[in-house]
Amino acid sequence: MQPVADEGRPESVNLQAVFEQSGIAEVLDQLDRELVGLVPVKTRIKEIAALLLVDKLRKEMGLVSETPTLHMSFTGSPGTGKTTVALRMANILHRLGYIRSDHLVTVTRDDLVGQYIGHTAPKTKEVLKRAMGGVLFIDEAYYLYRPENERDYGQEAIEILLQVMENQRDDLVVILAGYANRMERFFSSNPGFRSRIAHHIDFPDYSADELFEIGQLIMGQQNYRFTPAAEQAFRDYIQQRMRQPHFANARSIRNALDRARFRQATRLFERRAEQLTAEDLMTIEADELRVSRVFEGGIASDRTREELA
């Protein structure tokens, strides 16, 4: 396609200047700072940001006119940062001018699919309208499709979703999220989705060291700190926990730390007659982690709490 000669269009552009002006460097830095590990994800996001930035310039130069497809799919285990990255993604897309506001609407099957005939379409449309101008994040999207029940209303939601994803690309970006293998099955039974999604990002599980770093970060944000012994206990805890069922990566870590804080508060309360320093209030001792059921090899009774959190 020949560039269209137009007086309003610049002859040349400075990519660096546009990059700085867009302010996405800030978001990418924030992503680097706040999210531990996830190197492949960060690389992909930088690539996507670069592509979108160049596309934007090409549009300004009159080389393309169409909006690129921006719908994405985030796959990975629970607690690997999909929602957090989706929030940042909304921010990046907004700064690049692909969406009008940086709001993210998070929904699951329940928000889209109705309970009786004729209930689904208005419900789905309501959600879509709410998300327009921003990003719609569908968590555990594979639940929309239930092949075992042919009268399931999920199919209706899928059809409306596909229609809007295709026809109103300027108004809405859809991000689907879920476990990798179940999403794979979802896409193979709904080929329409696969072809409308431009970017597939896979979120790897965290390593033990990364989880430890995440724990440190969470504690730091809340002004807590570990004693050296507690640090070791925390490392042991992570090792144990990773091997047990229902492990949800960073979310499990956050829950474990919440429980440690709970135990610390109980310990402090028991010696309430003494004077406490700020140091006391900040310190998490090894015992607070060691008493966890995880060290006894089972989390059967922890599980319900974990899932509720």
Binding site: S101, P122, K125, K129, R130, M132, G133, Q168, D171, L172
Partner: peptide, 17 residues
């Protein structure tokens, strides 16, 4: 035409209706 739209953030949703 439908119920009033209370929780929208963007004009596209209204224009759609």
């Amino acid at each position: 035409w439908g119920v009033p739209m209370f929780d929208l953030r963007d004009p596209a949703g209204v224009l759609y209706e």
